[in-house]
């Protein structure tokens, strides 16, 4: 291989690394500037103002907001993964009456922006007395995540060798035990990836909590970021510190499941 070709891959990787790291660096450096400083770009820090994290935490009440986010995620992620798995399994392996239509209808949900549905949802939940509650928010998120999850799990099950399912049937396994004992143990990367994606979406969900929950103290973590955005002024250092607080759990979860996540994504690619 010639020298330029050998350098190509590292060069491209470096380019992407820079593209990712420079904005992040700017966020990091902004978060340690004195609170309330007007910032216009990437700047060298004026001292190390770690107290920003403390004040951001207490001012916006992140203790309660993160608890809220955590409760919603704990309710949403397992339920969505379970429902998406069941629906995907049914649509991929069984002759569901009108299955294709149901699948098409679900795909339509992928194309529908959340902004369009949020106001009707608000009135629906209000009629049920579920506005201003975390249950209501969790239900809405589970429903909103179904289209992608079903699509994802259906394509996953569809790519599993049909021989595996047939062999299980011949051995007398019911469709229930085929799923739980044969297919799922071989689906860990796909399920983990879906779970991580769901967690990230659920955590980053902003518009739904904002509209469906009126009491700011009961909203989720991203809603706390608005606390530092005033009508005319933005406290960028505090906002940057708050952003780091909000993304920390997502980064932690991602790092923890990183290997599964990448395997899950690649599995689909290889099996096509």
């Amino acid at each position: 291989m010639s020298l330029p070709r050998r350098l190509a891959a590292p060069a491209v990787l470096t380019l992407f690394l820079v593209a990712v790291f420079v904005p992040f660096l700017s966020l990091l450096s902004a978060s340690i500037q004195p609170a309330g400083t007007p910032l216009t770009g990437l700047e060298a820090p004026h001292g190390l103002h770690l107290e920003n994290f403390g004040t951001a935490w207490s001012k916006a009440g992140f203790g309660r907001l993160l608890l809220s986010s955590g409760l919603v995620a704990v309710a949403v992620v397992p339920a969505s993964v379970l429902f998406a798995t069941l629906a995907g399994y049914a649509l991929a392996t069984m002759e569901v009456p009108g299955g294709r239509k149901i699948f098409g209808y679900l795909l339509l949900g992928l194309a529908l922006p959340a902004e369009v549905t949020v106001i009707p949802l608000y009135y629906d939940l209000r009629a049920l007395g579920l506005t201003d509650t975390r249950y209501g928010l969790a239900l809405v998120e589970i429903a909103a995540f179904m289209p992608f999850g079903t699509f994802w799990m259906r394509s996953h099950f569809a790519t599993m060798p049909t021989g595996l399912i047939e062999a299980a049937r011949l051995d007398g396994a019911t469709s229930w035990s085929t799923l739980w004992r044969i297919l799922l143990p071989n689906s860990r990367p796909a399920v983990t990836t879906l779970g991580v994606l769901y967690f990230v979406w659920c955590w980053n969900q902003f518009l739904l909590p904002l509209i469906l929950i009126q009491d700011p103290a009961r909203r989720t973590a991203p809603a706390g970021l608005g606390y530092f955005t005033g009508e005319y002024n933005v406290d960028i250092p505090s906002l940057a510190a708050a952003t780091l607080i909000v993304i920390a759990p997502v980064v932690a979860i991602y790092l923890f499941f990183q290997r599964h996540f990448i395997r899950g994504v690649l599995d689909g690619a290889l099996k096509g």
């Binding site: 106001i119 608000y122 209000r126 007395g129 506005t131 201003d132 518009l207 904002l210 509209i211 009126q214 009491d215 700011p216 103290a217 809603a223 970021l225 608005g226 606390y227 530092f228 955005t229 005033g230 009508e231």
Partner: peptide, 23 residues
């Protein structure tokens, strides 16, 4: 007191005021 940042307030206040128990 229920403080919400400006942008977020503009988006949510009309629906908040139409809730069963508004501010």
């Amino acid at each position: 007191r229920q403080y919400t940042g400006w942008d977020d307030y503009l988006k949510s206040i009309n629906l908040t005021m139409s809730a069963a128990t508004p501010p």
